[in-house]
Design a protein around this nucleic acid. Sequence first.
DNA 1: TCTCGACCTGAC
DNA 2: TCAGGTCGAG
Length: 230
Amino acid sequence: LFRHREESWGEAHAELLKLGPELEPYIEALPGLRLTRPSDPVETLFSFLCSSNNHVPRIKAMVEQLASFGPVMTNEAGRNLHRFPEIEAIAQVSESELRGRGFGYRAATIPVAARELAHRGGREYLEQLRLRPLADVRKELISLPGVGPKLADCIALFALDRTECVPIDTHIWQAASRLYFPDWQGTQLTAKKYDAVTAFIVNRFGRLAGWAQQYLFYENLLHWRERRVS
DNA sequence: TCTCGACCTGAC
DNA sequence: TCAGGTCGAG
């Protein structure tokens, strides 16, 4: 968030505590937490395309598989390290190829999304989304196969510099309903509730919303572990 | 607008 | 059985 001014973390830290005292235990527990951005839009988009209804270990394996289609950067200990491929390279991969590499049903959407992106102008198209109104950005991203509201918000926040954007995944939903919307605890997240939670967090934390989101995620991880133990 | 179920795969 | 969702149908 303050990527060029590490010293201002203290400032943001104090502001975050003031805006959301309920997050204090989590903020104190993770003093090194940072919201890293901007990430590369191409890599971010396709990585999140692997993430839906999936576990982190498998997401990681799939992203590494995608990377193998990119150019070799260097060779380390007899193993080639690849740069993440550009959109055009992913567009040439076939569904069956990805199926064979364990992508499951995402094998169908990833190359199609890549072809559509290439058609829209490739990397340049993605980069210029930074300058567009957030509503347009979400609409554009959601019109890609495999991208819904949650992924669109992840891409907007992590890769397109939109800190006013708060992706609501299962963890944020559970944490936010527990802390801020007790009536919704245990209910299913709908589009309307999604927007309400996003608006609430943006209102409460302003430009630090994306950061607060990271701590809410952690809040739920802790509670999730407690629930499993008990 | 909301609720369901299906969807690949593999860790637990 | 379920995971840092999406999509189509009713």
